[in-house]
């Protein structure tokens, strides 16, 4: 640093340069020893911040290990009902199931297949009117190594079959989108190696 000459650049501008990688003043900054020293200081400050955060996370994890269980127990998460889907009943009955329950069912069916983890699941169509066509859209995270076309067909068949038994929805299509491929499980032979068809 040259103490006799202050180039007058402010720390704000240098921080912005560091954040964005560009600056209208880049030509000066890149060749000014004073700015370069400041940039180096900012960089090591950020590096120290990351290290400090690592330490913080380590001690947040280590301190009284039961804290997270306590918080989880306190959350008491309520499930989401979504729309109401009517079911045929007697004259005096008003039977229905919730959209949330149907989606949970699709999730369970999908999750039970080897290599499949269900993401978002949506029922498209007016489920509140009996007989209206409904399309099921499912996002799937697949385990690497499972042939996708076969997996998609297996999933479609299983979802169709289950919804036919458990609901009165007029399911006209089951759309499967693979949104994620997870790396294969290494090590233990158990788990999702099987095709999971039953």
């Amino acid at each position: 640093m040259n103490p006799t000459h202050d180039c007058g650049r402010r720390i704000e501008a240098l921080s912005d340069y560091l954040d964005s990688g560009t600056s209208p003043d880049a030509e000066h900054i890149d060749y000014c020893p004073q700015c370069q020293a400041q940039l180096a200081g900012l960089r090591s400050l950020s590096a120290a911040a990351l290290l400090m955060m690592d330490d913080d996370v380590a001690s947040a994890t280590a301190d009284d290990t039961g804290w997270l269980d306590g918080i989880m127990a306190n959350l008491r998460l309520e499930s989401r009902a979504g729309r109401t889907i009517p079911l045929r009943g007697g004259e005096l009955d008003e039977l229905s199931e919730t959209e949330g329950a149907v989606i949970a069912l699709v999730r369970t069916v999908g999750d039970s297949l080897g290599g499949v983890l269900i993401g978002r699941c949506q029922l498209e169509g007016d489920v509140s009117v009996p007989g209206e066509p409904v399309e099921v859209k499912i996002n799937v995270s697949a385990r690497y190594g499972h042939p996708l076309p076969e997996l998609a067909q297996t999933l479609r068949d299983a979802v169709f079959a289950e919804l036919l038994v458990e609901t009165e929805l007029n399911v006209t299509a089951v759309h499967v989108a693979f949104t994620d491929i997870r790396p294969p499980v290494i090590g233990n032979g158990s788990g999702e190696s099987g095709k999971g068809r039953s």
């Binding site: 979504g82 989606i103 999750d111 993401g119 699941c121 995270s141 994620d180 997870r182």
Partner: peptide, 23 residues
């Protein structure tokens, strides 16, 4: 196997499921 599947599922998949009401 579900706990294992969830354990290595990316945030995006967990967030989608959670958004659908999966506790």
């Amino acid at each position: 196997d579900l706990p294992h599947k969830l354990a290595d599922a990316p945030d995006a998949v967990l967030a989608e499921r959670a958004g659908d009401g999966n506790v």
